[in-house]
Simulated assay, not measured.
Amino acid sequence: MEEKSVNKTNSNGYTFMFAVIMVIVVASVLAFAATSLQPTQRENVRKEKMQNILATVGIETDRDGAQELYDKYIVEELALDQNGEADESINAFEVDLAKELKKPVEEQVFPLYVAEVEGEKYYVVPLRGNGLWNAIFGYISLKDDVNTVKGATFDHLGETPGLGAEITKEWFKESFEEEKIFDENGNLVGVSVVKGNIDASDKNDNKVDAISGATITGDGVSNMISERLKRYLPYFKKQGEIKVAIN
């Protein structure tokens, strides 16, 4: 009897059944853990988004303080259509830019965040485009002349470490500060990432220095800035306090 029991536990059927049970148990534990963590993950994503928006207007914070400072400095959230009209039925903060970009332009929603910091007004525009391997994205804020960049932040899903991934570095983001998005004729040209001898002190040339070895990522940054910003021209043209000519 003892020998039969040993043979039974060593059989293929027993091994298979044990493996099936273990797979079910492990899958159940992982599914439970994933479901339990979803609210925390969503909240972390929300707060990180607030941090990035605030960073473009010079407000640095950790996740714990993000909500309080966001509520303090972001005075308006707008969901704009292609004509620059706000749709109050849409929560601008919840707009998924990745999904919007898959729609025709006339159907897209364009989120805009208005900040007031120490008496100064800023407009924060979400960005999204294509890098070398995957999506790149971020935010760029404009001063109340809607021409001068206050700050910018960038991130990516799969750019090469040491090359395209350098768009997340402080030195690259800081190079955009005070750059102009309109040329001398009032045409919106954005800020281009360009190879060559760029004069970092010239803030009227609409250019910043490129990252060595990351031409395609740099072009992606240039393209997404100009493409996204031009979608907001209809709104900016309607604002009476604009101080620059916009064509």
Rank of each mutant, 00 (worst) to 15 (best):
V23W: 08
T56R: 07
K203H: 12
K203S: 02
L233S: 06
D209R: 11
Y123D: 01
P104N: 03
L132F: 15
L163D: 01
L80T: 06
E2Q: 09
K207T: 06
E106F: 09
E184Y: 07
I90Q: 10
K237T: 03
Y14H: 07
M1Y: 10
G138S: 07
Y232F: 05
A210I: 06
R42Y: 02
E106Y: 14
Y113W: 13
R46M: 06
D183N: 14
L69Y: 11
R128G: 11
A135E: 08
V194M: 15
G190T: 09
E107K: 15
T9M: 07
A115Q: 04
G84L: 08
T153G: 05
Y123I: 01
A55R: 14
A115W: 03
D64C: 00
V29L: 14
K195T: 13
L54N: 07
E118Y: 01
F236M: 10
P234T: 04
Y235F: 13
Y73E: 02
E76K: 15
K49A: 04
Y14L: 01
V26W: 08
M17N: 09
G138I: 00
L132P: 10
E166A: 12
N247I: 06
A86I: 01
F154R: 05
D64P: 00
F110M: 12
K72T: 13
V23M: 12
L163I: 08
L127C: 09
P39I: 01
S28I: 11
A31N: 15
E177N: 15
A115F: 04
T15G: 03
E3P: 08
V6F: 07
S226E: 06
V6C: 04
N91K: 13
D96W: 10
A210L: 02
W133R: 13
Y235I: 00
I53K: 13
G196H: 12
P104I: 04
A86Q: 07
F18L: 15
L157A: 10
W171C: 03
V125A: 06
G164Q: 07
K207G: 00
Y122M: 00
M22V: 13
G218A: 05
G162P: 07
